[in-house]
Amino acid sequence: MDADELDWNRTLREQWEFHWNHQLRARLESLTDDEYFWSPVPDAWTVRPRDGSTSPVRHGAGDFTVDYTFPEPVPAAFTTIAWRLAHVIVGVLATRNAAHFGAPEVSYETWEYAGDAATALDQLRTQLDIWLAGVAGLGDAGLRVPVGEKEPYPEAPMADLVLHINRELIHHLSEVCLLRDLYAHTASTTNGATR
């Protein structure tokens, strides 16, 4: 096949969709609230009820906030599944959906974070659907258009952003799966699980 005939838009979407359909979706569907909040180390960053957070910075518009501080600590704080999903939902997807595909403006400060695993997974699926529909709507020509001032590298083509988002999704959601494995082999068989 000639490179000029290749459907680059479909190819970029399929990179993510294959991983989602064959590696991640089934692994995430049964996520429990205990796993969602589980912290294998003390003082991990997570999503917490607004009145229960001791984090120096608490982002969120609803009943739950996400832990954060700036500058970030060294070493970086360990983060729970809840925190990692919040990052993917808001920082990776929802802000990009707003910047590029007409979704409502959002930020870490204005997001209503999920207080349970099922709600977080619903938020994830919603943002993924918006992202994939937006990317599909770009066609091949739209992949060549610069991303603009809402991104750190405004002259980069949209294809670069799609590849970056694919990497972020694969990376962070694979971490979630690893934490689920760790939970299954440690916390679920002991009384030492912490929240």
Rank of each mutant, 00 (worst) to 15 (best):
G62W: 07
H19E: 12
F70E: 13
F78C: 14
S53Y: 04
W111Y: 13
D34C: 00
E35N: 04
T69A: 11
P75M: 13
P104H: 06
A76L: 15
S55W: 06
T119N: 04
D51H: 13
V106F: 06
Q15I: 09
I81H: 02
A118C: 10
W45L: 02
E109T: 14
A120P: 02
D67Q: 09
R10P: 00
V88F: 01
W38M: 01
R25V: 03
A103M: 07
T69C: 11
P49S: 05
I89L: 07
T69D: 03
E17S: 12
T95E: 14
F70C: 08
H19Q: 12
R84W: 08
E35T: 07
D33Q: 00
D67V: 02
D51A: 13
T110M: 04
T79G: 08
T69F: 11
V57L: 15
W45M: 01
G62N: 07
Q127R: 09
W111V: 02
L24W: 04
V41D: 13
Q23R: 08
E5H: 05
T119D: 12
A3W: 04
G102H: 06
T119K: 04
G102S: 10
S30K: 06
T126Q: 11
R96S: 02
I81G: 02
Y68S: 15
D51S: 12
E112C: 15
R96W: 03
T79K: 12
P104R: 07
L28R: 00
W16Y: 09
A118E: 14
Q127D: 05
R125L: 05
T54P: 00
V66G: 07
D122N: 11
V74P: 05
Y68Q: 10
T65D: 12
A117S: 14
P104S: 04
T110P: 03
L31D: 00
Y36T: 10
R50N: 09
D7G: 01
W45N: 01
Q123W: 03
N21W: 07
D63F: 10
R96G: 00
A86Q: 06
E109L: 09
N97P: 03
E14A: 09
T79M: 12
L28I: 06
H59R: 14
A77R: 14
V106L: 04
S39G: 15
V92I: 06
N21S: 14
A44T: 07
N21L: 12
A118I: 05
W8T: 10
T46C: 05
V106N: 03
A99D: 09
L85W: 01
R10W: 00
G115F: 11
R50H: 10
D63C: 10
F101N: 09
V106Y: 03
Y113G: 01
D4V: 08
H59A: 14
T65N: 12
A26E: 13
Y36C: 05
V88G: 02
F101A: 11
R25S: 12
V74I: 13
H100L: 14
T46G: 02
H22N: 15
F101S: 09
R58Y: 10
A98Y: 11
S55D: 10
T46R: 00
A99N: 11
T11I: 00
A76P: 15
G115S: 11
A61C: 07
Y108M: 15
T79C: 15
A99G: 13
S107M: 08
P40E: 05
T119W: 01
A61V: 08
E35G: 04
R96N: 11
A61D: 13
D33V: 01
R48P: 08
D122Q: 13
L85H: 01
D67I: 01
P49N: 03
P49C: 05
F37K: 00
G91Y: 06
